[in-house]
Simulated scan of single mutants.
Amino acid sequence: MAQNQPIFPIKPEEHSVHIPVSIERDSTTLTNSNQKPNHWPTILFSTIFVIIGQSIAKLLENFYYDKTNRTEINQHRQDDGVWTQSLLQTVGFPLLLLPFIILTTKKHNNTSVQFHYKSLAVIYICIGIIMSVQGRLSAMGKLEIPFLLFTLIYPTTQLLFTPIFARFINKIKFNRWVVISLVLAVGTVALSFTSTFGGEPGSSEESFSRGITAALFAGVCFSLFLCNIQNVFDNYIFKRTESSTTIRKPSFASVFEVIIFSSLVATLISVVGLLVAGEQHDLKREMSGFQNGKGAYVMVMVGQAVSWQLYWVGIVGLVFSVSSVLSNVISVVTWPIVSVLVVNLFDFGNFTGEGDDEFDIFKGVALITAVLSVAAYFFRLHKENRDSAY
């Protein structure tokens, strides 16, 4: 019996199970496929949220501009509503409080964990500032330059700067499939130049210098937003699960946490900007003059706020699941879908004086390149998941 004693102690083997926790979220890899068992479902649902949220938000935005008689607005009031549009992108964050509380309670753990409250507070304030500036600049850019030019500058800037920031901020390494996906995404943007927009400025309302600058910096801000979100996950939220004495996988509640606190800051900034600019008076005028009535106006505004929250859940969810780069790719390749929906639901040809809108070959090819861009990235994810299984 004494000879059998050494066989039973298993503490060294049990202890060895905890070693991989410190590398569960490795920022030098692109996919982090081993960090959670629901990797693919999270990616797919987040992608669906981005497509649905952005599509509905953009359609309602077009409907808003189409029914507020933009043709009667003179050049000095061309930028009316930019703070309002920025506010609509973040003001719906209270809708996320309930799922956040439910997921947080479900994942409650009594172990002592360092939450880095002060550091996260500063970071959320910075991200909120970036969100508000990005929302304001993107809303301004669309009203200052032709939409085809905005379509080329804004998403292309995102696709160029997000990989650069991700490489230096998040230490992400790239491979040929990711490069192919980015190239196809840029091609998708280039083919979307025939897209139309309800707030298209007239020739007398265009301001190329301000519009181009706004579109350019809006794209840079969006890239900074995505990469800073990933930095929060990598260096704070995921590490606080590793600091626990019990192995805990990151919860999707962290996605709601990031959106809620960042949106709170962005909302406060947008409200202040709206009041300083006096846009609260424009809201009353727009509601009274809305072609479909006051009730429809309120529904359009509420619908935009809700849709933007769905979009942010998808965007941040993709950063949580994979990386800022994939999140940006999915966001950009959704543009052709919106363009096709706008063509089928609106007729801005007479509005802009450029003839009727139609589904042309460029929109069709843009849809194809968008699918190929996502397929290239997803193929890489599948390949890495398969390799990690062996």
Rank of each mutant, 00 (worst) to 15 (best):
S263R: 10
L367G: 03
M301K: 15
I337H: 03
Q54I: 08
R248N: 13
G289E: 11
Y311S: 07
V82P: 00
L149Q: 11
S195W: 02
M301S: 14
L345R: 05
E200L: 00
F256C: 12
L318I: 07
I337M: 03
D282W: 11
T267I: 03
I247V: 14
T28L: 12
Q114Y: 12
L310D: 04
E354I: 08
Y297T: 04
N228H: 13
I237E: 09
F252K: 10
F362K: 03
S244L: 00
I56Y: 04
G295I: 03
N292R: 14
N110D: 09
L160V: 10
F147P: 02
Y124V: 06
V21W: 12
S324G: 06
R25K: 14
Q304K: 13
R25Y: 15
L95G: 03
Y154N: 07
G278S: 06
I102G: 09
G349S: 01
N292Y: 12
P12L: 04
L318W: 02
V232L: 11
L88N: 00
G53F: 01
W308C: 09
A376D: 02
T267M: 09
I48T: 10
H281D: 14
D66Q: 03
D79S: 15
A375S: 11
K58C: 10
T352F: 01
W312N: 14
V179R: 05
S262P: 10
S270F: 02
L159M: 08
I127T: 04
F379Y: 14
L148S: 15
